[in-house]
Computed example of a mutant assay.
Amino acid sequence: MRIVISGGGTGGHIYPAIAFIKNVMAKDPTTEVLYIGTENGLESNIVPRNHIPFETIEITGFKRKLSFDNVKTIIRFLKGVSRSKKILKKFNPDIVIGTGGYVCGPVVYAAHQLKIPSIIHEQNSIPGLTNKFLSKYVTKIAISFEEAKEYFPKEKVVMTGNPRATEVLGNDGIKGKQSVGLSLTKKTVLIFGGSRGARPINEAVLSILDDFANRDYQILYITGEVHFEAVKKEVERAGNPNNVVIVPFLHNMPEVLAGVDLIVSRAGATSIAEFTSLGIPSILIPSPYVTNNHQEKNARSLERNEAAIVILEKDLVGGKLLHAIDEILFDQNKLQTMHLNAKKIGIQNASDRLYQLCLDAIKNKK
């Protein structure tokens, strides 16, 4: 099989694509893959680092307001379609997959014009502009949240889940805990706000360090590189509680996740896919700065299924966060119920489902 994948802008579009590629290559090493992104996007570093062949096109996103820049974007889109056609004709893929971000717009649309089967993968509960546009032209639409169905043609939609969930399965939680100096016997709370951290979460956590010191659970606190030094000083002022471990970033997140009992985090689609596949209960603090407020919609989906507690950023204070953590960890029945509910939501074979969708789309074309 020959596959072209396109997606970029954020890790939420790129990492599911890479997870899928790794899964496909493990199944069939003869598969040939080409990734199309932008030269300046995050994907231009991440994809080649994973030894995946990479081509670029030039494209920018649409402004949501009326703007002359949108005229330039349309011109770039048409040029991007032309460039994508040349790349696709040369590579001759059996299928083209778009995982989101404006870069996949010209690529997937070019596939439609060349009559190549195509799939878009939507990670969030509310789709972005690009996937809404492409939904008219693709063969199938893979979704990760049931709530996304209403935005797409029903006959094209298939629930696959997020391929990133596959990567966190089968890891050694004991090894993960040991790697960051955590106790193997205490319940563990992982707190993080994304790769760059989140100031409101950091402030709430710092305000309750003294309270954490008196709890019999332990905290693994990922500050983000930007905030690490400032947070480290505050932790030192609090006497370096021996049940609080702080790190700027984790390179072995799947391993560590396998040993965690509770997560406090933003509500990005990729993160949710990872910890629901493991059945980890969560306290979600959605970022209010994302398009269409999609993180809150993601979080509310888990809350409705009693797999998460949601605290909006505007309501976030240390005392409220501490109460929510205590409420879950001090009630074994609640912890177990949330674990089972999260597990029900999590789709552990997402990559396999997406792979089967590809095979079906190719077969039906033939």
Rank of each mutant, 00 (worst) to 15 (best):
T38M: 07
S301T: 15
C358E: 02
I14G: 01
V180Q: 03
P29A: 10
I285P: 02
G105C: 10
F145I: 07
S67Q: 12
S265T: 13
L357T: 02
V103S: 07
D210Q: 13
Y289F: 15
S351N: 04
H121G: 00
A307N: 05
I328A: 03
V260E: 02
K63L: 07
I246W: 01
A299Q: 06
A350R: 01
L284A: 03
N214Q: 15
V103Q: 00
N124V: 08
V47Q: 01
S287Y: 14
P254F: 08
V226W: 08
R300L: 15
A148Y: 04
G61Y: 08
G279V: 10
E306R: 13
L66N: 05
E203W: 08
H323F: 14
A111N: 05
G105K: 00
N341E: 14
I87F: 06
T30F: 10
T223H: 09
L340M: 13
L278K: 04
G239R: 12
T139F: 01
R300C: 02
I36W: 03
R83P: 01
N214K: 15
R76D: 09
D331V: 10
M338E: 04
F330E: 15
G98C: 14
N243F: 07
P241C: 14
E303C: 03
K136S: 13
N70C: 10
T185Q: 13
S82R: 15
A111H: 03
N45V: 09
L184S: 11
P16C: 12
F212S: 02
F275N: 05
G224P: 03
T223I: 12
R199C: 05
E146Y: 05
G100Y: 03
D210L: 04
A273E: 07
